[in-house]
Design a binder for these strands. Structure first.
Lengths: 197, 197
DNA sequence: CGCGACGTTGATTTGCCTCAACGATTGTGG
DNA sequence: CCACAATCGTTGAGGCAAATCAACGTCGCG
């Protein structure tokens, strides 16, 4: 059991200092959930009442546009947090689907339990504020970089962040994340490999 | 004096409930600052120690890439907050310039004073957390929309958000914000007007 | 085994960029 | 206040990256 929490504890301790009791109080609310490949952590139309931490596997977040096309906005592997912050905070239904691209394991905590943690160990509020802020900064950076980058550069940025992403999600989903078609991604990779090899 | 604070009070009261005393405590730290067209609220290389609220005018936020090209990432008109959150929170120097595109007036509050406000009126901490979260959500939405939109669609989204932006900033800056060249924006507008007229 | 989803490749089109030239507007120094 | 320079927005020609449409082999799954 304890072992299942090693990664999440390390993740938290990157931001705040906590002792065993504080961590134990928090982890007492954690639930381990296995999610099979292609199953969903969150489904569009539902309210996101849980915060999830990926312990093993990989997830993709996507929406559908007016024509029903999937639109991948994010990937998450081990040591990443998943959820829909807006839905979580406002109680509105989410437009996002969060799908396991591999058999995965997440640790989840319910919003109500999280409130108890905030009350008992206020440091955790700081932790989650930092998580949100870091996410914002990362997104801002990605946005300003991508706006003036070629598809190849975006692709290379993605590989740098998730170096084995190719083994975890299909090319189709990577193309969607990059905002290009699968055909284009195929050609781009071919061209890039030629240069190197 | 009081009148200068009407807009900011309304802005805050959209998120939290405050009484006169609480607002007075906060507004006691506010400084009104006039910033002339082309002058900067924040300059790259400086630390952002202030949070700004636009009372009148318009600002653009931009960075420079390796080749020195300006890259507009954001606009802000009356009723918008400006600053560089990352720099503000971490104390790192900012890569951003925040420039008035018109003669403008901002209300500013120093980080240290903001801490005093948080201590005295904790609700304000909640307010600024909401501001950050809303900003994040808006950015996320903009990102996922833009990734699969034509330049024309992005342009129309911008007009919808800031309907008189054309009167406030140059076409060049709008093009930069959209991630296209001024030439392309000119052609796009021409084409769109033709359809309508 | 057979179907459907996936990745690849080809041909063609489209959207935006680059480079260049030009009037109109803005700003500046004499 | 005028004259000149700089900047801005527009327009044209040509090029390139990615989209679209289509065909085909492969792989995973029922």
């Amino acid at each position: 059991m304890q072992n299942n929490f090693a990664l999440i504890r390390k993740n938290i301790e990157k931001q705040i200092v906590i002792n065993d009791d504080e961590f134990r109080f928090f982890s007492g609310f954690l639930l381990e959930k296995k999610i099979s490949k292609r199953d969903l952590f969150l489904k569009e139309g539902e309210v996101c009442n849980y915060t999830g931490f990926v312990n093993r596997g990989c997830f993709r977040t996507f929406t559908r546009d007016d024509e029903g096309n999937e639109n991948v906005t994010r990937f998450a592997i081990e040591d990443y947090w998943i959820g829909d912050l807006y839905s979580y905070l406002t109680g509105d239904v989410s437009p996002y689907n969060i799908e396991a691209t591999l058999d995965s394991t997440v640790l989840i905590i319910h919003k109500n339990d999280m409130e108890k943690v905030y009350e008992q160990v206020p440091k955790f509020e700081r932790f989650f504020r930092i998580i949100v802020q870091r996410g914002y900064i990362a997104l801002e950076k990605r946005f300003s970089i991508d706006l003036n980058s070629s598809a190849l550069q975006k692709y290379e940025n993605l590989l740098q962040k998730f170096n084995d992403i190719e083994l975890r999600v299909s090319q189709k989903h990577i193309a969607s994340y990059l905002g290009i078609t699968p055909e284009s991604l195929s050609r781009i990779k071919k061209k890039a490999y030629k240069k190197e090899g």
